[in-house]
Design a protein around this nucleic acid. Structure first.
Length: 535
RNA sequence: GCGCCCAUAGCUCAACUGGAUAGAGCGUUUGGCUACGGACCAAAAGGUUGUGGGUUCGACUCCUACUGGGCGCACCA
């Protein structure tokens, strides 16, 4: 059980009335003068208890008696502040060193089945920096939610059936014609990226001019296979992985798209106008109705997507998380409305929108556009700054910040990325501990400094940090935590020598920094970072 | 024009979703290596949290009206 959870129960037991545990908020005060932990519960009970916060807080204080808590103080205008017992903090060192990689794990998620869909980039080109942000977010969230006991499925949706794929096929065919020395023309809405030219090159090298009479489907399929393969390779290099790849085409093939269409028709929410089939999404959350089948008989993107989300529901997920670019925000209402029409509970869908990455080059904005082929690829980024620095950069920021990424600055100052500061802490500890064994300390007797106890409190907080990162879907909390822990360690390192002539002193401090190293690496794992032991 | 998101130190971002004196990194200034790694530490300067109202014990956080940015507003995906 996490420390906040324990405190919640301790408080609950001390209350004169029954209060829902989730209403008892435990916080970590910014100023240590206000305790290691604090609660504002007294403010919340003033109405029910018909008393003022100070009186309520003092009543609670007088009842609380737990060996985990050293003392309780009440502060104006009614905060209850807790100080954690030092032996309890010290013993946590042993727990960390024993549990190792598992320290911080919990069953908070109760094995709830979660589907997290992210990246899902159309296989019509190479991944760029914007995809990197979504990839890191989805991957970190998956790792974090798994760690706290959710049953997580990581999923990638392949849009391999629509118009864009057709355009891809055309673009490849035209490039192939170009390579064969024939007249060619890339259509206005075709793909102009350099990867299409390389694709044509591959085709030419393999088949010469023998494929000139193949239809668009042939080129589409070749493009899909190769580009999707490249995407998977890039993601793998970025330490981003998936459990399931779902193909849009497979939803047509299995008949689910048509089944979904019939269910929508049965729902009575469809009507025909101007030769197209519309869905009355305005009956729920949408601002205008949407077309399901165009007047030319083709389906819009929405229809297979309703089928896709139905499929996710049918697979029995308790919660569905979609990670999308913020340019898709207008899409949410029509999707949720449609799903309600076919009988699913759309409140189980959590759509996380990530703001665009604005790419700067020497202070000037570089417009990303796949169509014109002007992109900074994910691979180029990794090449320049490395996987760790790139991942940390994305992982350390909240979803709704519109972040600026100055590539020149990032490369030039890559050593100033906080990840190096964190790695340096890990390297220092590794260097001290190298070749030595950590022993269990039955009774700590020499750890007394404030800086040591600040670290111990920070270590104790770890499980709660992971839980709130998971429940709030905010992986950057873990990134912040890591940086703080690294900073506390550097500080501690500068004031206390670890290895001395005193055997007990040395043994206890080695156990402490070993615990720091374990937690640092567990946090790193959560963010998909691999901390170097030497720099 | 309508809708969603954003605005915090010179710059890039935090602030535990309503808590106590708004914090880090970079940059600037000052001090610290005969120590287990100086890619470090200690300290200073830097803020009317875009603006005006409101809600309450308490607001960066919630409501409202503005200002300025991003993104949407297809029988594209």
């Amino acid at each position: 059980m996490s420390i906040k959870n324990k405190l919640q129960y301790i408080i609950k037991k001390s209350l004169p009335i029954d209060v829902d545990i989730s209403k008892i908020v435990i916080e970590i005060p910014k100023d240590k003068k206000n305790g290691d932990y604090s609660s504002n519960i007294a403010f919340l009970l003033t109405k029910e208890l018909k008393s003022n916060p100070m009186v309520i807080a003092n009543d609670i204080k007088n009842i609380i008696n737990d060996k985990m808590i050293d003392r309780v103080e009440v502060a104006n205008p009614g905060f209850i502040n807790f100080y954690i017992n030092k032996d309890y903090l010290l013993d946590n060192i042993n727990i960390i060193n024993t549990e190792g990689k598992n320290y911080g794990r919990s069953n908070y998620g109760n094995l709830e089945k979660i589907n997290i869909e992210y990246v899902s980039a159309n296989p019509t080109g190479t991944l760029h920096i914007g995809h990197g942000r979504g990839a890191v977010y989805g991957d970190c969230l998956s790792r974090i939610m798994s760690f706290v006991g959710y049953d997580v499925t990581r999923e990638y949706y392949i849009n391999d059936a629509g118009n864009q794929m057709y355009n891809l096929g055309v673009s490849i065919k035209e490039r192939y014609k170009e390579r064969c020395g024939m007249a060619f023309e890339i259509p206005e809405n075709g793909y102009h990226g350099s990867e299409i030219i390389s694709l044509a090159e591959v085709l030419y090298n393999e088949y010469g001019m023998s494929k000139l009479n193949e239809d668009i489907d042939f080129f589409k399929q070749v493009g899909l296979d190769i580009l999707l393969g490249d995407i998977k390779k890039d993601l793998d290099r970025f330490r981003v992985n998936f459990d399931v790849f779902t193909s849009e085409q497979s939803l047509y093939d299995s008949g689910l798209v048509d089944i979904t269409l019939n269910k929508l028709k049965d729902s009575g929410k469809c009507y025909i106008n101007d030769g197209a089939l519309w869905l009355k999404t305005t009956d729920l959350y949408d601002e205008k109705d949407r077309v399901l089948i165009k007047s030319d008989g083709n389906y819009t993107y929405l229809l297979p997507d309703i089928a896709y989300h139905s499929d996710k529901f049918n697979r029995g997920f308790d919660r569905i998380i979609d990670v999308l670019g913020s340019d898709h925000h207008g899409y949410i209402h029509r999707l949720k409305s449609s799903l309600e029409f076919v009988g699913y509970d759309s409140s189980k869908i959590d759509i996380k929108l990530l703001q665009m990455v604005r790419l700067l080059r020497n202070g000037e904005e570089v417009k990303l556009s796949k169509r014109t082929g002007k992109t900074i690829t994910l691979n180029e980024l990794i090449e320049d700054v490395g996987v760790n620095a790139a991942r940390y950069f994305f992982a350390s920021k909240g979803l709704d910040t519109q972040m600026d990424f100055d590539l020149d600055l990032a490369v030039k100052k890559s050593n100033e990325n906080p990840i190096y500061y964190i790695e340096y802490a890990n390297a220092r500890i590794s260097s001290i501990l190298r070749g030595k064994t950590i022993e269990r300390v039955e009774k700590f007797s020499t750890i007394e400094s404030d800086s040591a106890y600040t670290i111990l409190n920070k270590l104790l907080e770890f499980e709660d940090v992971i839980i709130s990162a998971a429940s709030k879907r905010m992986p950057h909390l873990v990134a912040n935590y890591m940086l703080e822990l690294a900073s506390l360690f550097h500080s501690y390192y500068s004031v206390e020598k670890i290895i001395t002539d005193n055997e007990i002193y040395t043994k206890e401090r080695m156990a402490l920094i070993s615990a720091v190293k374990i937690v640092l690496n567990n946090a790193a794992y959560m963010l998909g970072l691999i901390l170097r032991e030497e720099m």
